[in-house]
């Protein structure tokens, strides 16, 4: 038979799945399932990023307001839950979302590389695929590295400045007053903005949210979210450098 691909024969749908697994796991095994997970964890992460940005705007109200906001987070849902428990639950959810988001991205990237082992030997001329959509894995990785650094910088240990646990306002002002650090924050957030620009639009497709009534808005929503997050977050290092936020 003149065919060079997969042997023909009775089609065996789902032959790839090895063992019967609980249905969410089975769903996640498919690439489409991974896209759903990407989209849902993406929504969680977008929610966090926006809340994080909005919370940080308190910086402009002064140290007391800002530090009080930090304390509020630790007091969240007290007395239903003991102090910091709600915050930890949120953190665990967030970490899980990150891990899944990264694992799904990693697996899909591997699938996609295997799907075209020999690349085009001439220059591609893309029409719809934009710079953001084709650099998701790079903007994701850049932001991920930045995030780790950011956690060490302001949450765990501080990075070579006078770090005081429980004094976030002072820590931010001290850290970001260093020009290279401020630049790093700007770069990290620009990468995040580019990532959100495609990611937010993309999640509508992945989740099957397509409807002529709101389709025209999907791109606008993505632009708005990316813009708000970038403008808010980039304003902090600039404000610190400009002297509007200082110890």
């Amino acid at each position: 038979m003149a065919t060079t691909t997969v042997a023909r024969g009775p089609a065996k749908p789902g032959a790839r799945a090895k063992r019967k697994a609980p249905f969410p796991v089975e769903f996640y095994r498919s690439a489409l399932g991974k896209k759903y997970v990407m989209a849902i964890t993406g929504i969680m992460l977008i929610g966090f990023v926006i809340a994080h940005m909005v919370g940080n705007l308190k910086m402009y109200l002064g140290p007391e307001e800002f530090n009080h906001y930090g304390e509020f987070l630790r007091e969240l849902l007290v007395p239903i839950l003991p102090r910091t428990v709600a915050l930890w639950l949120l953190r665990i959810g967030l970490i899980a979302a990150f891990v899944l988001h990264i694992h799904a991205a990693y697996s899909l990237t591997r699938i996609n590389h295997a799907a075209r082992t020999v690349k085009y030997q001439s220059k591609r001329d893309y029409i719809a695929a934009n710079w953001a959509s084709r650099t998701m894995r790079y903007t994701g990785v850049i932001f991920g590295i930045f995030l780790v650094w950011h956690l060490f910088d302001l949450t765990f240990t501080g990075t070579n400045y006078h770090y005081v646990r429980g004094m976030p306002y002072e820590n931010v002002a001290n850290s970001l007053s260093r020009v290279p650090v401020a630049l790093l924050y700007i770069v990290g957030n620009l990468a995040l903005g580019v990532h959100l620009f495609h990611g937010t639009w993309s999640l509508f497709q992945s989740l099957g949210w397509s409807n002529p009534r709101f389709n025209a808005w999907r791109r606008n929503i993505a632009v708005a979210i990316a813009a708000i997050v970038v403008i808010g977050n980039v304003s902090f290092p600039i404000a610190v450098l400009a002297g509007a936020v200082h110890t």
């Binding site: 038979m1 003149a2 065919t3 023909r8 024969g9 009775p10 089609a11």
Partner: peptide, 13 residues
């Protein structure tokens, strides 16, 4: 029918 194995297809033949 090809999927079910009742018909065998010979393409490019």
């Amino acid at each position: 029918q090809i999927g079910l194995g009742n018909v065998e297809l010979y393409n490019r033949t």
